[in-house]
């Protein structure tokens, strides 16, 4: 997690974009996070919105990717609403197997990706979002 550095290794990681992945399905989360790590991103894995809020209180991700339908005190749209209030410029990519694209974008998601997705599609979306912020 940024911005605190624990070691030289941590410091070297600090230059890489930090992606917060919020996904309750373990195998999907692993597949996506490992694909992102292979691309050189730092990744934090959160299993629900509550964990994501814990991360956001302690770290400063460059981008969030969140599923919509998750257990916990709020779903991905609830998380999106909190992020839009507190971090209005932070890119948020919403993913869902359900047809929630219009709602997600109206509520402030910067992109919507329908499930099932290819990891390469997610990487392209991240690259586009991060390039937009440069």
């Amino acid at each position: 997690m940024q911005p605190v550095s624990a070691s030289p290794q941590e410091a070297s990681l600090a230059a890489r974009p930090l992606i917060l992945v919020v996904e309750d399905e373990l195998l999907i989360r692993m597949m996506l996070c490992d694909g992102l790590r292979d691309e050189g991103y730092q990744v934090i894995e959160a299993c629900d919105a509550d964990e994501a809020l814990t991360v956001l209180a302690a770290a400063a991700p460059d981008l969030i990717i969140s599923d919509v339908r998750m257990p916990g005190s709020m779903d991905g749209m609830g998380l999106l609403a909190v992020v839009r209030e507190t971090l209005p410029t932070l890119p948020v990519i919403i993913t869902s197997a359900h047809r929630e694209a219009t709602l997600a974008v109206a509520d402030g998601a910067t992109q919507f990706l329908a499930k099932p997705y290819l990891v390469v599609s997610v990487i392209e979306a991240i690259e586009a979002e991060l390039a937009r912020g440069l």
């Binding site: 997690m1 605190v4 624990a6 070691s7 030289p8 290794q9 941590e10 209180a57 302690a58 770290a59």
Partner: peptide, 16 residues
Amino acid sequence: YEPEAVIDYIKRLRAS
């Protein structure tokens, strides 16, 4: 690196 650095890092994150 030493595990104490890991513990310190976690403590700092929790403090922040």
